[in-house]
Design a protein around this nucleic acid. Structure first.
Lengths: 149, 149
DNA sequence: GCTATATTGTTGACGACTCAAGTATATCCA
DNA sequence: TGGATATACTTGAGTCGTCAACAATATAGC
């Protein structure tokens, strides 16, 4: 029970922290940043909506809305898929890649700071391993590969 | 980095799960449940708004809105504080306590199930301890004392 | 005592997400 | 081959929470 409550509180506090920084410095929400990151790591810098949904743990409509925003910002383009007319790819554009690059440095540093001052490297590994067993935490698009946030 | 991303994903997935159950079975959001729980554990079943904000990791306005909802449901009453006219207490009413009691059993069982099938008792203790070091995760109103969720 | 600052709470406007419902396409199988 | 089911996505309406601005009260310092 303690673990669940602390997961809730810790997530809320940390997300507020990261969100404020990211928004103030780069005009991005956490979800937008994460989406850009997943796209950047993806093969051909493109992902189906459904895969983004799984990777980000959002509903399909949440992804539609997120991509609308990133589209308006000029960070992402929609592209239809020949071979399956149902899917609409999200493709990372240069502007998106650039914004991601700008944001990544400070964002990653902030994350490292928060965790670094609370855990040893061993503990951080333990924590990551334990959290990785939660549903959604290990979904497809390996969100840790690039090690960028 | 992995820890942060997995915290995000794990939280999203777990919260969606718990939220769906709680909403379907008892018409409560996770925040509403947690608020009732904190009130129930509090001295005199009452808490200042600012303390709820700290305990739940919400903003003051978030708490105002949360208490508006709980008020309309008849679960909570507002009460002014003699001695400090700024504060407005939230007081748990019987209906609120009853709803909490109804919800607690299934909710706690669901949480135990999700965690129990993924971690040993030792690991669960580790996880809780590690998460407890995060900001917000250890705030005031000891959210683990009652061990109810 | 009285002003400057801090604390507590509320409100309006808005953002990000969800759900339910709907459209369009693909796949399965009798 | 063709009808039932599953998959991918979008849309309208609604919810939960935020921020910025504000009002009211309390506290501290001179």
């Amino acid at each position: 029970m303690a673990a669940w409550v602390r997961l809730l509180r810790g997530h809320a506090a940390l997300r507020r922290l990261m969100s404020a920084r990211l928004q103030a410095d780069h005009g991005l929400t956490v979800s937008e940043y994460e989406a850009l990151l997943l796209l950047d790591e993806a093969d051909g810098a493109r992902l189906r909506g459904v895969d983004l949904a799984a990777g980000l743990v959002l509903t399909p409509s949440g992804v539609t809305r997120l991509l609308d925003r990133l589209g308006k910002l000029g960070f992402v383009r929609r592209e239809s898929c020949q071979g399956d007319a149902r899917v609409s790819y999200a493709v990372l554009l240069d502007a998106g890649r650039q914004r991601l690059a700008q944001a990544a440095c400070g964002h990653v540093a902030a994350i490292r700071a928060v965790f670094g001052e609370r855990y040893t490297d061993t503990e951080l590994g333990q924590l990551a391993e334990l959290l990785g067993r939660l549903p959604g935490a290990s979904t497809g698009a390996s969100a840790c590969a690039g090690d960028a946030g």
